[in-house]
């Protein structure tokens, strides 16, 4: 068990280093980053001054080392546009993104797991067919379009919900539902197929043969085993979600990191973009680490298999 956790921690470290290298080189992708950051009519002297100020005249490995050693100490550079440390801006916006992603995930899980279980248990029933058809539609809609459709219905026509901004629960409903629906569809399909597989296992047959009540068989014996793949996928999706709220934040003018990054890109504020990408990627890795630990709790076998 200890070895497994150690191995996972090492994984976290090398992924973080790899990401920092890609984030660093991203800014050098187009050739001369200074030309990207300045307006096209900047004078030669201005270009030189910024290049010197940002240290772009040093060799690349030296620059990377400086970037990495600053990053480790929590200094991810200064936003060119806002003129404050990038990390401050990101952490100021992060709670909004986490709130949105968390709400979407919560809605998705709460609805999809019961839906998937019932579909699996009552396989082939009207309920099963209609919820799987619904899931197929859910998977086929871009979430930002769904958001726009909700605005059209609930804000423009019915006037029930606010179209943009953050603050009250009413503000959270549409963006989190729009973001959560495709996840809901994905999880419902997954729960159903995993439950179908688990329900055909010998230990479920044994439990039934012992005369246990059906609710007990499903709730205790089947569900706990079905949860293992679900936890993995949900953890991974939550990681994707945090970096994936960009478009929905734009649709609903939600003040999260995604919108910050889009604005930073349009204002050529590349140090801020670089910093945001790095922070979100590290967050993704940490969420995966937590997922793995939950996984370990659910299925102790895994530590022996993986640590070998």
């Amino acid at each position: 068990m200890g070895r497994y956790i150690l191995k996972r921690l090492w994984h976290t470290v090398y992924v973080a280093v790899g990401i920092s290298i890609i984030s660093f080189f991203f800014i050098h992708l187009s050739g001369d980053p200074v030309m990207l950051m300045l307006p096209p009519d900047a004078s030669h002297a201005e270009v030189e001054a910024l290049r010197e100020q940002l240290g772009f005249n040093d060799p690349l490995p030296v620059q990377y080392w400086r970037f990495a050693s600053h990053a480790v100490r929590g200094d991810l550079g200064t936003s060119l546009y806002h003129r404050v440390p990038a990390i401050d801006l990101i952490f100021e916006r992060l709670p909004a993104s986490l709130e949105l992603a968390g709400a979407a995930m919560l809605i998705a899980l709460v609805v999809s797991i019961p839906l998937g279980i019932v579909s699996a248990v009552k396989r082939g029933s009207f309920w099963d067919v209609s919820s799987m058809l619904g899931a197929l539609f859910g998977l086929s809609m871009p979430h930002f379009w769904l958001g726009i459709m909700m605005i059209l219905l609930f804000s423009v026509h019915l006037g029930w919900l606010p179209t943009s901004g953050r603050g009250t629960l009413a503000h959270l409903i549409m963006p989190s539902l729009a973001l959560g629906l495709s996840l809901m569809a994905m999880f419902a399909r997954l729960t159903r197929s995993v439950m179908l597989e688990v329900l055909s296992q010998d230990y479920v047959r044994t439990a039934r043969a012992k005369g246990l009540r059906e609710q007990w068989v499903i709730g205790k014996h089947a569900l706990k085993n079905a949860l293992i793949p679900l936890v993995t996928v949900a953890g991974m999706q939550f990681g994707f979600l945090i970096g994936g709220t960009v478009i929905i934040e734009t649709v609903f003018a939600w003040p999260g990191v995604g919108r910050l990054v889009v604005q930073a890109i349009f204002s050529r504020d590349y140090p801020l973009v670089q910093a945001a990408v790095l922070v979100l990627a590290v967050l993704f890795v940490l969420i995966n680490l937590i997922t793995d630990l939950v996984y370990l709790y659910l299925d102790p076998q895994i530590s022996y298999l993986e640590a070998k």
Partner: peptide
């Protein structure tokens, strides 16, 4: 592959497209 998996896909694509 692990590193690529961890990258926020949407941000990666929009930032690379913005630069290129």
């Amino acid at each position: 592959a692990d590193v690529f998996m961890a990258y926020p896909f949407m941000l990666l694509t929009i930032s690379v497209i913005a630069v290129l």
